[in-house]
Design a protein around this nucleic acid. Structure first.
Lengths: 229, 229
DNA sequence: CATCAAAGTGTCCGATATACACTATGTGAA
DNA sequence: TTCACATAGTGTATATCGGACACTTTGATG
């Protein structure tokens, strides 16, 4: 079965830059390509958009197929469509960015991909297509996103400590923050609820646990409230 | 002649949200569609991307063809691709945003468009497709862009007054600014050069003329300098 | 009970943002 | 010539925010 059009059409793909955070280090989820072009090379997970499928849905589907990673917050980064970026011909890709807790997302290779694995963001291998440039673009976006949207809160476990949150923000920004200033700011947002509970099984003073107040955030957001860490 | 593929492909278009500024009012450049779907309705200028054509180049080409507007700074807004946004079938569009000085850009209708005209941004007609949503998105982007990039300086005439610049920024932000504070900030950037010249033929005290120091900005930008109005 | 490792906490200072009102000047009309 | 008008041009005081900075507390472990 083939599909015929009166005018030529570029192919349309989606690619996902999934940043995985764990223990203070930032990683990117990459696959090893199992088919030409760039067979064997590392690349961002992604693939062709189906007809009748929303762009973000396509990104989610490809990500699940190729890496097993699901249930994450995706944000559109933009379209990359320079002629020549794909040796197969004209291919325009819509890139998405996400940040997830690495340890929550066991990866497994699947369709079209030999392997899916996390790579430290500071030591990435050579990549297929223009994926290196897309990742560079995504890092800039991530730094902005993590300061102005509750991505961090959302992706931590339900109960977390302020240090957990700070580590995560630091990893996303790529620089350390002052503990006292961070706590001041984050608590002043009034979006965290202290629980009657502390960490367990830690060989040191146990830290207070908090949860994120989703409802309150939803209400504030409606009123045009903007936060900034 | 037809084009055949093994898998179906969405059509790919570009659309331009061109904000035109003049005398304190912000306008958007719209065309009247000359062909179905939405024949006769207002819409953003745009159209199909050619093979071998960069996305931004396609945006420029369509804009020139449909409205006669050329030579402007375009910035990618993002991809809009919900299934159903176009009654002809699956069409994904990449939207671009620009801000120009309205009076510098005489518009004329052409290809596929019955008419091209500026519409005040506060009183837009009903639009074809999802163009109303795209414009809403573009306004948010514009407000951000005008404060963090020298769009304003760039698009004013070579010689301009501080009041000209303030009017423009106010129009883009959609709110008035304090004159003294604005001047303080803008002059402290050290990017404007006062000329030995004042306005002419004005029925009031003539204002000092300035020019934008492009070179200095280029140098600062390279050092990672960021400004904010 | 000594050690360790991280939790938790407050102040000061400098920079930045905002609010705010009058005088100066050039044109054009009376 | 002078008066009215319209806009240019200017500075200060205050509140707010961000960033620098170091010690004490607590709980677990050996």
């Amino acid at each position: 079965m083939t599909y015929t059009y009166d005018y030529p059409r570029p192919a349309l793909t989606v690619d996902c830059v999934v940043f995985g955070y764990d223990e203070g280090a930032l990683h990117v989820l990459l696959i090893e390509r199992g088919a030409p072009p760039f067979e064997g090379a590392h690349a961002l997970p992604g693939g062709f958009v189906d007809m009748e499928e929303d762009l973000e849905a396509a990104a989610r589907r490809e990500l699940a197929e190729e890496t097993g990673v699901t249930r994450l917050y995706l944000e559109q980064l933009g379209a990359f469509g320079a002629p020549g970026r794909d040796p197969r011909g004209r291919v325009v890709t819509i890139a998405y960015v996400a940040l997830v807790k690495l340890s929550d997302h066991a990866v497994r290779a699947a369709t079209d991909a030999r392997a899916a694995a996390w790579h430290p963001v500071e030591a990435l291998p050579a990549l297929a297509f223009d994926h290196t440039a897309i990742i560079a673009c995504a890092r800039t976006r991530l730094a902005e996103a993590v300061r102005s949207r509750p991505i961090g809160f959302e992706l931590l476990p339900k109960k977390f400590t302020l240090t957990d949150l700070q580590r995560l923000v630091e990893a996303a920004l790529g620089r350390p923050l002052d503990k006292r200033n961070f706590r001041k700011k984050v608590l002043s947002l009034d979006l965290l609820v202290p629980l009657d509970e502390v960490e367990r099984n830690v060989p040191r003073r146990a830290a207070q646990l908090f949860r994120f107040d989703r409802r309150r955030y939803a209400r504030l957001e409606q009123d045009g409230f903007q936060f900034r860490l």
